[in-house]
């Protein structure tokens, strides 16, 4: 049963329009792992229409940060070169699917007439991969922030070492003590030191 469904859907043409290389790759991988063989990623907005005509997709995904979403929708409205009119879900009962997609940050367009069950699996995949990407991005963001904080503390230590003739350990101990006394984070204290040093220069 499951196999039959997979072989049936493996032929779906899926087009991904995303300027974020990493996110597009994450989605593409997920779709390929799930057995979808005909997946195309488009980054170049200039020839978007050409690519859509050439690829003749059944499903199109576009990231919601992309201002070209409005361009894409207009193409569906006016173009006679696209095989069938493509519409976002036009059924009242699709609201939940749209909500999940919008929450994840992905817009989906589906060729008119495609069965809803076939769409759901692909859309679920896109939603979960977009969510996975957001999580990854948050983690990267936190890692970068941590790195920035470490650099700030290093600079503050350097300033204390030159201006007060302290050792590195003593400078760090001083920062930590100030942070504890003022109930602030050590990076905040470090920032104050760096700012103060700049003002006093």
């Amino acid at each position: 049963m499951l196999e039959e469904k997979t072989s049936n859907d493996a032929g779906l043409h899926i087009l991904i329009v995303d300027q974020n290389v990493m996110r597009a790759a994450i989605l593409e991988d997920g779709l390929r792992e799930a057995g979808y063989r005909r997946v195309t990623v488009v980054r170049d907005m200039q020839n978007l229409m050409r690519r859509i005509v050439d690829n003749d997709p059944d499903v199109i995904f576009i990231d919601l940060e992309n201002p070209n979403r409005d361009v894409l929708e207009q193409m569906f409205q006016v173009s006679r070169s696209v095989r069938r009119p493509i519409a976002m879900f036009v059924d009242r009962s699709d609201t939940d699917m749209i909500a999940a997609a919008v929450d994840a940050g992905v817009g989906a367009y589906v060729v008119d007439g495609l069965k809803k069950e076939r769409i759901k699996a692909v859309l679920d995949m896109a939603v979960s991969r977009f969510n996975a990407f957001s999580k990854l991005r948050d983690e990267l963001e936190r890692a970068r922030a941590a790195l920035d904080e470490r650099k700030l503390v290093e600079r503050a230590k350097g300033i204390l070492m030159t201006s007060k003739g302290m050792s590195e350990e003593a400078a760090y101990a001083l920062l930590r003590k100030a942070a504890m006394n003022e109930n602030r984070r050590i990076s905040e204290v470090a920032q104050s030191v760096v700012t103060a040093a700049r003002l006093l220069k």
């Binding site: 409005d70 929708e73 609201t95 749209i98 919008v102 929450d103 817009g107």
Partner: peptide, 15 residues
């Protein structure tokens, strides 16, 4: 927001 389509969809889903 970055597109009119986003505005429409986010009003529709209640964001």
């Amino acid at each position: 927001e970055t597109s009119w389509a986003n505005i429409r969809d986010r009003v529709v889903v209640g964001h």
